[in-house]
Design a protein around this nucleic acid. Structure first.
Lengths: 220, 220
DNA sequence: TATGAAAGTTAGACTAACCTAACAAATATA
DNA sequence: TATATTTGTTAGGTTAGTCTAACTTTCATA
């Protein structure tokens, strides 16, 4: 049985490994920063996780999840994303409100609960942010990797997922009526600053920044 | 903000106060036994709760919830019973499985979550065990107080709530096809041992023990 | 009403998760 | 390559919640 905190370390490591596929290992400071604790605290916990064979860890070395650690981490991510979906779909939470509550709900211990919840939601493949929901067996559905910023003028695409899940960005998306599945047409690409002119569904074209275009995954 | 443990102490005290309306106060040992900790541990925590003005506590004295403590306790009970209802109604959990998971879910912090959940469930007044679900304002719906054992031969009633929520009893009820709302007719009362012969809906009459009859609340 | 049992408290210790301050290793760069 | 910066570790301390063992108060009853 893993503690609340141990689970958070595993999830953090998993998320960090997703952020950079080529380099799935993380450093102590990186972990600490991600979790909002001091590096000394992370060092202690990493030793403990190593004892439990959840991570590979050597003094001054990089940290990597073991098979067991990965399995556990994925299980937590699965719960997190299923709960996010529940909050969004069934309880009418907005895009930017689901994360905080799901952070708590993901630690509820009950195998039956997760599986029943998944069934209740109709076995969704993606959460409200477009992130893939791991299956009970640990499989993770394939996901779009194309950024809106990679699109060329004239191309049409659909919003597949958000890369940046900060409240500010999510609220901005809501204001623009952009959600998962929204159709976007790239009207013009401004070479000068990487900004784009896009058409959201059938609305008037509007300009968005490069930062914005690099924060949305799309599917053409 | 209350800790997980503090919340459990408040809920325990509230439940103990319901068990005996005339005597809403509890003792240290009683609390400790209920929570599965040692009396010394309870003493420590009670001092802490007193500092926070959640209970009235004096050395060697009885313990009582303050207004604030009661309000907090009721809020937790509300969450517990709403989650139980969710698990039973929406996720197909059985009568005896809901409690354990709800014990965890009741500690999730989000005012919005509770209220949205209540709305999603259609503002239920009673949980799967027939216990009243406190409203957002702290009001607790009135509840049946008549025990099946108080019924006389010939009387008909409906099951309103279970007094004993032990797994063994709940599973036995399921086996007998008794649930909240089931109609029971008392055929005969055996003076010798307090056992009853009852008819469950339209099934053949069967005999139940006094212990059984004292564990079910009914409404005539 | 004196006294032994029951109920409750205190003192001291442990663990998990955190911290700060000081130090050590690794890495980047002048 | 020597050194400064970054990264990571160690040592020692804190808090919440728990424990055991010894002690004190209260209460029931002989």
């Amino acid at each position: 049985m893993l503690s609340y905190t141990e689970e958070n370390y595993l999830k953090a490591l998993l998320k960090l490994s997703f952020q950079n596929e080529e380099r799935p290992e993380a450093g102590t400071n990186e972990m600490a920063a991600y979790l909002g604790v001091k590096p000394a605290t992370a060092t202690d916990m990493l030793k403990k996780l190593k004892e439990k064979d959840l991570v590979t860890y050597k003094k001054y070395g990089k940290i990597l999840l073991t098979e067991s650690g990965k399995k556990n981490g994925i299980a937590i991510l699965r719960k997190h994303r299923l709960w996010e979906t529940f909050l969004y779909e069934k309880l009418d939470f907005s895009w930017d409100e689901v994360h905080e509550v799901a952070e708590q709900l993901e630690h509820i211990q009950s195998a039956k609960l997760v599986d029943k919840l998944e069934e209740f939601l109709g076995f969704p493949e993606f959460d409200p942010h477009g992130d893939p929901i791991p299956k009970a067996n640990g499989e993770i559905p394939a996901t779009a990797k194309t950024l809106l910023s990679e699109m060329k003028a004239g191309q049409t695409c659909k919003v597949a997922a958000v890369k940046d899940t900060s409240t500010l960005f999510l609220q901005y998306l809501e204001k623009l009526h952009i959600t998962i599945g929204t159709t976007l047409k790239v009207i013009e690409v401004i070479a000068f600053d990487g900004s784009l002119s896009i058409q959201i569904e059938n609305e008037e074209p509007r300009s968005i920044s490069m930062k914005f275009a690099e924060s949305l995954f799309v599917q053409s």
